[in-house]
């Protein structure tokens, strides 16, 4: 029950709505009763299966109904295995399941049950088309590029169609260039390659251009923290990046992200240099002022600094 706005209605409207709801509730209960009572280990009722589709389209979270459908599919598979004739009926049934999940996902792209059922069906499908699935993912990501179900599904499909991580790296660069503020793309990128001496400069440049485009946006700062925590980032990289950060700070003196990143860099570059330490302390003091919600964190960081 997320994001459902409470709407004010008249008494008359409420009465009509209540009547409609009573009808729907009755239909739901009758449908569930019919399905669950007709559920048998060795046979199934096509009428119940059809009712089941209708109920899932309305609410794909009724997990027992997906289980029921899987039982039906397994029955058909074992029947199909025992006769040598064409498996057209089976393929039709499986295709029908795929269509159903697609309908459910269009209405509710975040339904765990629908995504899982879809993958389960494909694993049991003799003529499955993984490329199709890959294209479907791309389509869904254009509709909502933060849908983590879809990103996860894409990852599962990659292995099936032989898309390499290198291809995906290009895909991720494209997604990031379309929208720097897409956290999901940055996350995805972090899973695609081990950081090496060869790629570290490119990664730092990509982050840099994102930060200079919009320093107020948080996504690339998280990626930067990760990059900096890696041992392939050398002192010379850090010094160069610190110069960039100082440049950015002149343009945006009150941007907390820049100050936070400056503190990381100063810390990494060495606590023994007294100038660095003073600058870091001043930055934390300023952060307490401009970002009071997270004051507790900055106070803790200062305490650690004062111990050295």
């Amino acid at each position: 029950m997320h994001g459902r706005l409470k709407v004010r209605t008249t008494e008359e409207q409420q009465l009509i709505k209540r009547k409609e709801q009573q009808k729907k509730l009755l239909a739901y209960r009758l449908g569930m009763k019919q399905i669950l009572e007709s559920r048998q280990p060795d046979t199934y009722d096509p009428n119940s299966l059809a009712i089941c589709s209708q109920l899932l389209i309305v609410n794909p979270d009724i997990y027992t109904l997906w289980n029921y459908r899987k039982e039906v599919v397994l029955l058909e598979i074992s029947a199909d295995n025992s006769n040598d004739s064409s498996s057209e009926a089976l393929v039709n049934l499986l295709e029908n399941e795929l269509k159903l999940t697609e309908q459910c996902l269009l209405a509710n792209p975040k339904s765990y049950g629908s995504w899982h059922h879809r993958y389960w069906i494909l694993e049991n499908h003799p003529d499955r088309n993984w490329q199709n699935e890959f294209d479907l993912c791309s389509k869904y990501l254009t509709m909502d590029d933060r849908n983590f179900h879809c990103w996860d599904y894409r990852r599962l499909i990659l292995n099936k169609i032989g898309v390499t991580l290198g291809d995906e790296l290009k895909f991720s660069t494209n997604r990031i260039n379309i929208n720097f503020s897409n956290y999901s793309s940055w996350h995805y990128r972090s899973t695609l390659q081990a950081l090496t001496d060869d790629c570290v400069q490119d990664e730092l440049s990509l982050v840099k251009s994102a930060l200079f485009t919009d320093p107020m946006d948080s996504s690339a700062w998280f990626y930067l923290r990760w990059l900096l925590s890696n041992s392939v980032v050398k002192h010379e990289h850090m010094k160069e990046f610190l110069a960039n950060i100082n440049q950015l700070l002149e343009l945006e003196p009150d941007c907390k992200w820049i100050l936070v990143a400056k503190c990381w860099l100063l810390k990494l570059l060495g606590l023994d240099e007294i100038n660095y330490k003073t600058e870091e302390m001043e930055s934390y003091l300023k952060l307490q002022e401009i970002d009071p919600m997270r004051k507790g964190q900055y106070v803790d960081c200062l305490k650690v600094l004062q111990l050295y």
């Binding site: 983590f148 990103w151 996860d152 999901s184 996350h187 899973t191 923290r225 990760w226």
Partner: peptide
């Protein structure tokens, strides 16, 4: 576990 220190639902899934 992810690059941001968070966790997702399966290996490589975004932190939530």
């Amino acid at each position: 576990k992810n690059f941001d220190g968070g966790f997702g639902s399966r290996p490589f899934s975004e932190s939530h």
